[in-house]
Amino acid sequence: MPSLFEFANPKKFMDLSGSLLPWLVAAAALTLGAGLLLGFTTPPDYQQGDTVRIMFVHVPAAWVAMMAYGVMTVASIFGLVNRHPLADIAARAAAPIGAVFTALGLITGSLWGRPMWGAWWVWDGRLTSFLLLLLIYLAYIALNDAIENETRAARASAVFAIVGAVNLPIIEFSVQWWTTLHQGESILRKGGPTIAPVFLWPLFLMALGYTFLFFVFWTIRIRSEILNRRSRTLLEMRAG
């Protein structure tokens, strides 16, 4: 796959990502703006009233939290198999962003649960497995930071990330395997979504917006890590 690995060259990556970044920021601003506008102007839900609007910030946060972990896992696999420093950097860069989206999903879910269910938190399969996602992110970050040598840190945390990926299907199917207080699947189900189109539009726009936002932060973090390593090498060369 020479076409893909051409961009694994840090110089080429810096050029490409530098020109791509403004477009990513514009796409994020546009979709988030449109999503919020629609989200505040949809009619209320027949059961949940205006509280339904929490869905537009909660559900995309949970999706992107899981997508970020998927991205981190793929980067970790490339790091282990191809031994390319850029893959190591990409995996490490995704973790704190994923953790923030996970925390956002937990906080918005709690704020939604209190008025609708009558509880801020319950230990059901969905909530517990999603809390586990946050703990896995935090453990990954701690492990990565605890090892001084960059290459060794990347190897160890890649192994951890790949094993931890088993939690993703558990989160997804928790509401089917077990009885939960959290609702069942609304979108990917037989017979189509059970969410009216008027709610689906803001939901998908916000999901798109969060996704762009993830890639904006991810790109910035990868770029700054590359620059960081470059400047460290320069300083070492001067000192040495």
Binding site: P44, D45, W117, E185, S186, T194, A196
Partner: peptide, 17 residues
């Protein structure tokens, strides 16, 4: 000791209902 509400996965505006 405690009663919680479990809502389903359906979302629609009141007019549709």
């Amino acid at each position: 000791d405690q009663v919680l509400a479990k809502h389903d996965e359906k979302y629609m505006p009141p007019e549709v209902v």
